[in-house]
Structures are given as C-alpha cells and as structure tokens.
Design a protein around this nucleic acid. Structure first.
Lengths: 372, 372
DNA sequence: TTGTAGGCGTTATCAG
DNA sequence: CTGATAACGCCTACAA
C-alpha cells in the first residue's frame, strides 16, 4: 500500500504527463500518440483505443501552449472593453463567452477603463498572447485608431462591437439605434401622443445622434412637426431629465409623450411627472432606452428598447470566426446592425403586460440583422 | 517609394519578428537579445540600448506562448463563474481583472452556467492552458468536489470566492453574511423597531443561513424575543415577499420592521406595505441585501447591505498571488471574510441620505477583513 | 500504419 | 559580459 514515490519530498504534486510519457509507456512513438489523440485517419483502431485508455488513466491534458506555439495560433480570443460593469458590457461578454466556448475558443478579457493608453497596452498584450482574434469596444477617449493598424498588419482578425470605428472597411456589430428611436416614437404616436418630447443625449456620440434621428424619422413619417423646443439635450442623468421635464411641463403646450434616449432619463421624467400629479401614461406617456433592470420594477414599469446585448456578443463572435476561417483570404468587411426590440410596458400603454411585450410589426422597415 | 516586399502575394502582413531576427540584424546571439529585453544584470548598457532601440523599431512583441512553455508558467489566471450577469459576478470579475492586470496577469474567463459538468470541463481547459492559478465560484449543482483535487494535485494555486467549498483546508474569500444580517437588524432595532420580521431565503444555501443567524444574533443581543412566526422562508422573489408581508400585516401583531435577505424581497415588501397604505419607514421600516442598482431609485430608497464585490475580486487575487508566490512551499490555507457595508437609506431612516450613508460603528464586532 | 527528426520562440545552463 | 546549446511539448513533412 505504500505510495510509489518518483521524487523525494514531493508529497502530492503530480507533474503533468506529456505525450512523450505516454509514448514511452506504450513503447510507441510520439507521432502515434499524437495521431491517436487527434483522431488522425491513419491510425489503427486498436492502437487508438490503447492510447486513449492510457491517456485517461494518467489523466493526460494536452498542453495548449505547446500546441499553439507549434501551430502559430491559439484557441484564445481577446476582448477589450471599457469596463465590465453595469448591464450592457457584462451581457455582451456573456454572449461572447458563450458563443466562443461553443466553438472551442476561450476568451481572455481586458478592460481599457476608458483610457486609450490602456487600450493600446491591452492590444499589445493580446498580440503577444497570440490570440486567434480580437473583439473591441472602443474607449471613450479613443480618437486615433493607429494602434489597430498593428493588429491588421499582423493579419489578425479584428471585430468592433457597439463602440466602433466608423467606415466600411472595418468589421463591426452595432445596435441600430436609429431604428430604436424610430420604433419608440412610432409607438408613442400610435398610442395617441401628438406632442412628443425627446430627452436627447450628447450629440457627439453616435448612439444618441442616431436615436434622435429615429425620433425625427417617426415624426416626419406621421406628419408631425419637428419642434426643437421639445428636444432637450443633457447627459442623460436622472435629475437632469427631471429638471428638463419640469420646464417643459410649465410651458403653455406641454408634451403628451416623452421619448428618452436612456432609461435613467426616463426614470427622472417619470418621477417628475408623478410629482406634478400627472398620470402616466394617461396624461403623459414615457419611454426609455436600454432595458435597464429597474425599468420593470417602477410603477408603472417603463417601456424601453432592448439592446440585444447577448445577440451582439454572438454576432460579434460569428463574424470573428468567419474572419478567422477566411484565414487571410480576401474578406469583404461586414457591418452588422442588430435590430433593437421595443418592449412595451405600462408607462406608455394602458393595457401592456408588466413584463413588457415585444412589438414585432412586420410592416416596419427592415434595417439589418444577423444571418439566421 | 515602392514598398519593399519580402514575399509575393503577401500584400500587408507583417510577420511577427522574433528574437532570432533581432539577433541576426545586430550580429549578436539570441542570448544577448533575451538578456537585454529582460533587463538581466549581466548586460552592457550600450548593448542594451541598441537592442531596445531595434526592438522598438521592428515593433518586437515577445511571444508569451513560447516564454510560458519554456518557463512552465503562463501569465494567465483562470476564472470560473456560474455566469457573467446581474450585478454581483460582473463586479467581482471587474475587481479580479483590475487587480490581476495590475500585477501583470491576464484573465481567461469561463462560465459554468450552474452546471457541474461544464465546471469540470472549464477546469480541464484552464489546466491545459497552463494558467498560473484558478479562481472559482461554484456552480449551484456542484455537490462533489473531486474535480478540484486534480487542480491541487497539479500543485496549481486555487482560490474560491463567494460560493466556496467549506472547510479550513481551502483558500476562500467570502462576504460575512452573518455580520450583514447582524448589522441590518441592529440598525432596525436602533431605529426603534421592536417586532422585526425576517424574509429568509432557502436555508440549504449558507448565505441565507448566515444572514438569518445574524438577524437572530442581533435580536438576542437586544433582548428581543425570537419569534419563528416572524420568519418567512421563500425563494426571495418579489411577489413571494409581497404575499408574505401581506399575511404578516393581517395578523394581530404586525411587524414594525422587516429585514429581507435579498433586495428583490425587500422591494416586494415595500410595494406591499405601500399598497396597504402604510408609510415606510414610519409605520414599517424595510431593509434589503445586496445593494442592487434599483435600491437607490425606489421611493423611498431601500436600506441595504453592500457585498463588496470589487473588494472580493481584489482579495481573491491577492490570496491567489500569495499562493503563486509561495510556489509550492507549505502554505496555510486562508479563509477571508469580507466585512459587509450597511447602506442606510430612507426605507429605514427618516433622515438618511438618498445615496445611502455608510454606517461605520467602531463598536461593532470585528469579524475579519483583508490585510491592509 | 508507424517512426524519425526538426522546429515553433523563448529561457536556462553551461562554458568562454 | 557574451555565446553556443539544449530543452519546454507538440505537430508534421518525410521516410520506412
């Protein structure tokens, strides 16, 4: 019963077993082992069984470092995000990891903390880790994109998501924010609203620019006037929104609907309306954007636009894998715009389900979506 | 101006430059290059400069795979979490990634999806990726812990966090839930509550068991009776909590305070109380657990316990790094219990700050914390 | 069907 | 202070 000891003083440490060890034990060459394990065609079934059995017995784990070094490609994907917090990025990362692991890849994750310098460093790290591809959502402070040229120069597959480099020579996955703004506003109009205010975000960010444009599209389509006095620009904070709505409600012709470009702004508006004694949605309907968790638990729950976080992750991985499989052969860059989903809740619709009911109208203009 | 082309048909791909390339260019040996780059002491400053300059010029990136293969240790840490969603795990991962990258490590992240089999596979993957250490939060379905023996057998540093294997021979970082329950209840008592109900979670989960115990501790300390009829067990869902409070309020002696073991339960209780026309906190004070985002935006904002997610990530990494540095030398396993933070808001305190004010009472029993 | 041998890029051990 | 050489574990022509 005495445990055999190979080395002195090494109580417990099982040193990892390599192919060479297995080969020695079976009296065959490493080639045979390698082939048996990778299910190569030119290997006898008997031999294969023997090898697999021994591998199991010794709990053989392939050394992916060695394999990757030899093949020049690892099974790792790199992710660079501004941060892993809030609702959006974690969900996208969740989608990415799920899709990646399904395809046999693992992800190594880096945060830029909204700092270009850190973003650059992250890219360098991922390059030297020999990842098979990189997924990036830009930091807020990124104005210069030269560091990405390094990646392309290496011929390394690169996909942007959400915060992307604009242009048609990059691979990118985004939410169609304009469609989101359009859907929300169209819905408010359908609910009978005729004076719809827009709580808009900073217009140097394309997401807010696009949401505003969707809002205008819907107004125009319905023949409603564009009224700049109904558009309030802010940083989308709850109190700014409340203050803004406060002012609008004090005017001669207050709005009967509010499309906020963010859920916190919608919340601020909701609370302000209620403070003023207004009923929501009867006196003023309010909708938000992002499907933050809290939108389901306010009274009434807030109508909002879901950003398809997980799908964004999936779509990004799909695109990246296509790029990886293309393996340097010419590949026409793709820009994917995910179709947002309007979740109608009681802040805009009297009869809406608390959980939010997805509005899918086949007559809506089709903007783009991932391939089925 | 014609671009020099090394290879035909290779338009743009800069193949990564290796130490050998630099050595050839400078007419020195690879050894010299390696030493210059790793700042070895026995290298001439002149030589070092030359090498560094050339490395910069050619944009040399060390191949971490090769380095790790040679050294038998990578600069990667593995994380296994049930999933990356909600508030808790993303924040912990955020803390982990931040601490790890500060120490020169990168993280590769895996989700078990609450599935033991997946958890096992994840461990295998991390082992074969030759990570330097592993951080694990157990899946709900994990009852058998043998797969972790493989990791220990390899002598690979292993730290559990939040959902941990119990016992004093593992390294683990948890929140002191008992202390959290104690702090909350003690606070309710200090606010004048004398009949405090507890919305408890499933008692097979240690977090809920511990929160309940803390509740009992505080009652006992204050000389208040333990009344099992005031403890309601459920899965902590919003509607269950509402229903539960509904029943309690209908009794002859309704509670004047509620300590809910989760924020959703607290929310359900708050809404139910308000439906019954009760004022919160005047008629009944309510506190929750977890510091979910929505607790700041309810009316009134809900007093809750912050779980120190980021600190948990940091502490886990610190412990793991200590383990890595011990490098196989005997290491007495450590269990770290993070001190929770009570955030007092208006649902329990008339005068509380909306944002929540941290209660730090030096007289509180000290349970444990990370080293400074 | 199996074996031999060389190399992926780095580092550690020697010897000068 | 510098260089030659041998690994690390795996893969893959090429040869048998």
């Amino acid at each position: 019963m005495a445990p055999r000891k190979k080395q002195v003083a090494d109580v417990n440490n099982t040193s990892p077993v390599s192919m060479a060890d297995l080969a020695r034990e079976l009296g065959v060459s490493m080639t045979t082992i390698s082939r048996a394990l990778s299910d190569h065609h030119s290997i006898g079934p008997a031999m294969k069984q023997k090898v697999l059995k021994l591998a199991k017995k010794y709990n053989y784990q392939p050394n992916r470092l060695a394999s990757a070094l030899r093949k020049g490609k690892s099974q790792l994907l790199g992710i660079v995000v501004p941060y892993i917090e809030g609702r959006f990025f974690p969900s996208v990362v969740h989608g990415i990891e799920t899709a990646a692991s399904k395809a046999g890849y693992n992800v190594i994750i880096c945060q830029s903390n909204e700092d270009v310098a850190q973003e650059r460093r992250n890219l360098d790290i991922l390059l030297s880790a020999q990842v098979a591809g990189i997924l990036v959502s830009l930091s807020r402070t990124t104005r210069d994109f030269r560091h990405f040229e390094k990646v392309r120069g290496r011929g390394l597959p690169l996909v942007f998501f959400d915060r992307v480099v604009e242009g048609d020579n990059v691979n990118a996955v985004v939410l169609d924010d304009q469609e989101g703004g359009y859907l929300s506003t169209r819905h408010l109009i359908a609910q009978g609203c005729r004076r719809i205010a827009h709580l808009a975000g900073p217009q140097h960010l394309n997401i807010y620019r696009n949401r505003r444009q969707g809002y205008l599209d819907a107004l125009r389509e319905a023949g409603l006037p564009e009224d700049e006095s109904l558009i309030l620009y802010s940083d989308m904070a709850q109190d700014q929104a409340a203050e803004g709505l406060h002012q609008l409600l004090a005017t001669a012709r207050p709005p009967d609907g509010v499309f906020a470009a963010g859920d916190y702004a919608a919340l601020g508006a909701l609370q302000e309306a209620q403070r003023q004694g207004l009923r929501v949605p009867e006196d003023v309907a309010i909708s938000g954007f992002s499907n933050e968790t809290f939108t389901t638990i306010t009274q009434p729950p807030i109508t909002t636009v879901d950003q398809r976080c997980e799908e964004m992750g999936q779509a990004s991985v799909r695109l990246l894998l296509d790029l990886i499989e293309a393996d340097g052969r010419p590949f026409t860059p793709r820009q994917v715009a995910l179709r947002p989903e309007l979740l109608v809740r009681q802040s805009t619709a009297y009869s809406a389900d608390t959980q939010g009911r997805s509005v899918r109208d086949p007559a809506l203009k089709f903007v783009g979506d991932v391939a089925p």
